[in-house]
Amino acid sequence: MVIRGKVWKFGDNVDTDQIIPARYLNTSDPKELAKHVMEDSEHPDFAEKHHTGDIIVAGRNFGSGSSREHAPISIKYAGVPVVIAKSFARIFFRNAINIGLPIVEAPSAVDEINHGDEVEVDLDKGIVRNLTTGKEYTATKFPQELQAILKAGGLMEYAKQKLRGNA
């Protein structure tokens, strides 16, 4: 799958309290959560101003902190098709894969992608292209099992397909 979109750039250690503040965790409705995505981050106007298809690019340790799956859910339902970061915090990493939100670890790409750049991600090949600068980067490859979960659309879909003998 190839994803193309405009970049919103964030720094290091974007924690889950910045992605979806706890004051909104009294609901688990994805649409409600998406209304407040990134509200306490360096781009508090993200939810309001981003367009469906825009891509999040961030530094180290994206999604650190809480185990709240509301964080990747709010990103996914805000129409963000992929998150590119230098590294992901462990629980966010699992949660994103488990709910079928594509994530890409591409440390070399992040420093050379600027806010507003146009970026293309080839998920199958693990390649990130900055269409604004014309540069290409290789993403870290995930183990096959994890790729299979992502491809199925998440852990539960994967388990369902596996039970039916399709995976």
Binding site: S67, E69, I91, N95, I99, M156
Partner: peptide, 25 residues
């Protein structure tokens, strides 16, 4: 399904935080 699940390691258990889908599974 809480990141501070790692607390229980203090008594020699393996304990780790996960999200809600992992927990459902």
């Amino acid at each position: 399904a809480d990141s501070h699940t790692c607390t229980y390691g203090g008594i020699g258990a393996f304990a780790t935080g996960v999200g809600s889908t992992d927990l459902a599974y």
